[in-house]
Design a protein around this nucleic acid. Structure first.
Length: 117
DNA sequence: ACTATGACCACAC
DNA sequence: TGTGTGGCCATAG
């Protein structure tokens, strides 16, 4: 395994690894903890290049809004939501009042489950 | 060696 | 209140 990760990515993975079970962190939050408050965008790419699936809990990283990533790599947003619910993460229905949506409408209750460093 | 692009978020107008 | 744009890491072609 050659060095395929730069300093920033390693910082990101290290932060994500420290997210406690049953809690979630936002991309911006991870970016800030990694030392790049304005690099939330690159956190997404860093996690997409997840070198150790199953080891790095990238499913605990969500949008600032609490919504999940549209193209989750482990089997779709529905799988990510399943993993989070299994850990006891609380979800809230869409503001619209329409709960027919799958994982797209439901969002994580950041008020209660966001990780605080 | 250079260009293009990708799981986002905060701010200006 | 809504829309547009900048930020700036790493990888592939």
């Amino acid at each position: 395994m050659g060095r395929m990760t730069g300093t920033f990515n390693r910082q990101v993975y290290d932060v994500v690894r420290r997210i406690p079970r049953g809690t979630v962190a936002t991309y911006g939050q991870v970016a800030a903890l990694a030392g790049r408050p304005r690099a939330a965008r690159f956190v997404g790419f860093a996690l997409h290049a997840n070198p150790e699936p199953g080891v790095i809990p990238c499913h605990r990283v969500v949008f600032r809004d609490g919504s999940l990533a549209p193209g989750f790599a482990f089997g779709g947003p529905d799988e990510q939501r399943r993993l989070l619910e299994a850990e006891g993460v609380a979800f809230v229905p869409p503001d619209d009042g329409s709960e027919n949506a799958g994982a797209g409408g439901w969002r994580v209750d950041l008020d209660r489950c966001q990780w605080r460093a």
